[in-house]
Design a protein around this nucleic acid. Sequence first.
DNA 1: GTGGTCTAGACCACT
DNA 2: GTGGTCTAGACCACG
Lengths: 130, 130, 130, 130
Amino acid sequence: MILNLDLASEVPLYQQLRDRIVEAIAEGVLTEGSPLPPIRALAADFGINFHTVNKAYDLLRQQGLIRLNRKTGAVVTSTVADSPFREDWTARARTLLAEAVARGLPADEVLTTCDSLLASFRTSHSGDTP
Amino acid sequence: MILNLDLASEVPLYQQLRDRIVEAIAEGVLTEGSPLPPIRALAADFGINFHTVNKAYDLLRQQGLIRLNRKTGAVVTSTVADSPFREDWTARARTLLAEAVARGLPADEVLTTCDSLLASFRTSHSGDTP
Amino acid sequence: MILNLDLASEVPLYQQLRDRIVEAIAEGVLTEGSPLPPIRALAADFGINFHTVNKAYDLLRQQGLIRLNRKTGAVVTSTVADSPFREDWTARARTLLAEAVARGLPADEVLTTCDSLLASFRTSHSGDTP
Amino acid sequence: MILNLDLASEVPLYQQLRDRIVEAIAEGVLTEGSPLPPIRALAADFGINFHTVNKAYDLLRQQGLIRLNRKTGAVVTSTVADSPFREDWTARARTLLAEAVARGLPADEVLTTCDSLLASFRTSHSGDTP
DNA sequence: GTGGTCTAGACCACT
DNA sequence: GTGGTCTAGACCACG
């Protein structure tokens, strides 16, 4: 698993880390039961504070995407999207899509982009379980 | 134009305000040349400080969505999405879509949701001039 | 004389107008004694308020670049840069050049750009009086 | 780092502050990674409100010259001039140079002044690490 | 102890 | 009557 962090970005490191891991899960690179690297190891890899990694893992735990355990470390869990999540997500998607439309992107181009992005997830995912 | 702000939200007020206005533009409720309410008037409507509204308007100005003018007030401008915006937007969309997939939402359902949201923009927009 | 105004720009119209006229003088398109278009005619050309043009002309008058007269209209005057102007200009140049350097432009490239811009003025100017 | 602000100037304080910091970066007084004074400390130094300093810092952040962080405070970042900046800067340089020429400054004197100003940046910069 | 947000209220420039 | 600037002071989030 290769994660790209941008140290110069405006986005907080823990947020980037969470985002990259979420993307890895969506892509199927990480599946249910997959172990995540130990916090300290990952922190050492990036040369960042382990508290930062800890915070990212904690965010993922709160969202039910991983389980933290002293023995097993952090492992990916399977989740079902509950209703509150759907509502929240749809509201955020609404804002993001609105931004694209307001900035002049044609709706069909936006939808095509979404489709491509989703396809990139599906492809990598389906490849794992033939 | 009715804008919903959540005073108890984690999201800063000025951010919410910006988001609601972006959505209004996407919906076609606000079109090129549409005047936005004066800063102080809008602040009074919501019972918030005019500096907060000012910050939201300033964000919109930075993104080229509105123009601020002492004479004419704030008016919506037409914009064309430039290349940096497209890249940035796609990256953000990627993260958002990944979150949905990682949380267990089927890709086709996600795409349907996006389509519906985009359609809701199109509908309101085209509905203005039958 | 063709002046390009950007109605969508952040820069005030009267400022743009002043800038374009200053550039025309530097280029030699307008020389000492050249008449400027009547305020109302210029305003009509651009479809802007004549007060805006008036303000631009007034700025130019304050800086000694033109003379306003009921009979002759606005005519370009020859000026010699006085000491206060030199100081003020140098300070502004310092800030502008600093911005280029701070943003990573190499000093020699910046100087070359300045040279090219100045050459473009010289060329047009010298062509008028062979 | 000594910054000169003119409280009586037409130029907004936050703008002056931004300009002085940009100059300090160009001079090499501030280099990549250099910490800027905390907003409130700088405000106290000048006897101005911290919101004013905040606005100056925010401008610098928007232009990619500094990074703001709750942990590390404000630090100078290295930037590469992108194409839009180059165009914008050249347009502004054109106007500024035109003003000098229109006011009667000989082109070669103008160029010499630019050269001197740029040299003053280079000198201070290279002089730090002999 | 840092920057970020929000409130409150002043005066100014422009028109 | 508009947005723009500046001051003053509060509380919060982050680390």
